[in-house]
Design a protein around this nucleic acid. Structure first.
Lengths: 199, 199
DNA sequence: CAACTAAACGGACCGCGGTCCACTTATGTT
DNA sequence: AACATAAGTGGACCGCGGTCCGTTTAGTTG
């Protein structure tokens, strides 16, 4: 079994020097645009122009706008992953699996609160919404916690169903449009987990 | 309290004759395009052209592509709504609320199986994904069933969380990409409901 | 029937995501 | 150092969703 960590891109076929430089330029440009003018201002043309490269290069590096957003989130994603795999309880190993599940949801909600817009933009594509490696890691993490908690049943699907209410698009809707607080969402998550894992 | 049914559009300010005629033309054209060449072929230009009207008219009638898709689904949506409000058990009133919840999920899954592509296209916009009247009806239906089942807690959020795994985009992913069967999804739904409503 | 007005119409126009391909360049080999 | 080639590059180009606004028309009023 290979490492469950997010694959380090280009480990086997390393990027050429100029390509790597342009990746950095593009990521910096994109991050700057987000900070200055919001996610909507991050058009592929704008990023390319700001980075001083051609539009084609942006697509070559990131495949799509969602891919670019995903790359922007990569750091945060890895941090979360590190935390629940190797970090301290209750998120990391050592704590009761149910508490870990609850902490996991809280951590995700916190991320959505901060990076919600970017997350939503990243979710706007099928491949990155479900087929992304980060998602696969989350699913298998939840599956293993469910198993560890002694839950019986279709772990795979149960994990998918539990992850669904944490999707950025929905959470943002609840926060912004319905005016719910993160605390309330956190409480509801905890309640949901306790119900599902009870008995 | 007003009728919980989907509002009959244009009841107060009736549509002009030509407008109503064009709406029909457009809906027929769109349905035909879906049947003949799939959802992706339903571009706003194509629909307009096929109906023999201008593009602006399509947008005036339906607001956006998602709106058009939503209109295409309206009939099905109303049917489901009728069924769970006035139809026979287990979907309709009379059955145990938990059984009604389970039946509701099964009904939705069946719809996704048949109209999945159109549903997904309709979900591609924020306003129609969450702010659509049909969704509000579903949410309040689930809320009332949870209440009737004697479930304690944050019904509103619990309903949202339960509805999330029924979203077309996710369900289609599970069916197509992960190769799961509708039966399996149905079983998982039933299991989820039983867990959540237990105790 | 003529005049009036609010509604509907249509298509030119815009910006964005995404593709394509002729051209350039970094890197390893002899 | 010269070469070969795989990788990278850039910008013209495309199609689509969505907007805008000058024009047309349906329904009403006297």
């Amino acid at each position: 079994m290979t490492s469950p960590l997010l694959p380090q891109i280009g480990v086997d076929t390393p990027e050429r020097g100029d390509a790597a430089r342009n990746r950095r330029l593009l990521l910096d440009a994109a991050a700057l645009l987000v900070a200055e003018r919001g996610v909507d201002a991050v058009t592929m043309d704008a990023v390319a122009c700001r980075a001083g490269v051609g539009k084609g290069t942006v697509f070559r590096r990131f495949g799509s706008r969602s891919g670019l957003m995903h790359a922007l989130l990569d750091h945060t994603e890895r941090e979360l992953q590190q935390s629940f795999m190797f970090g301290p309880p209750p998120l990391g190993p050592g704590a009761d699996p149910i508490d870990r599940l609850i902490a996991f949801g809280h951590a995700r909600l916190a991320i959505v609160e901060v990076q919600g817009e970017v997350l939503r933009a990243a979710e706007n594509s099928l491949e990155f919404r479900f087929a992304a490696p980060a998602r696969a890691v989350s699913v298998s993490h939840v599956v293993s916690l469910l198993r560890a908690a002694g839950v019986q049943g279709d772990h795979e699907l149960l994990a998918c169903s539990l992850l669904a209410p944490l999707e950025a698009t929905l959470v943002l809707h609840e926060l912004r449009d319905l005016g719910m607080s993160v605390e309330r969402l956190g409480d509801a998550w905890e309640d949901l987990i306790r119900r599902v894992t009870r008995c």
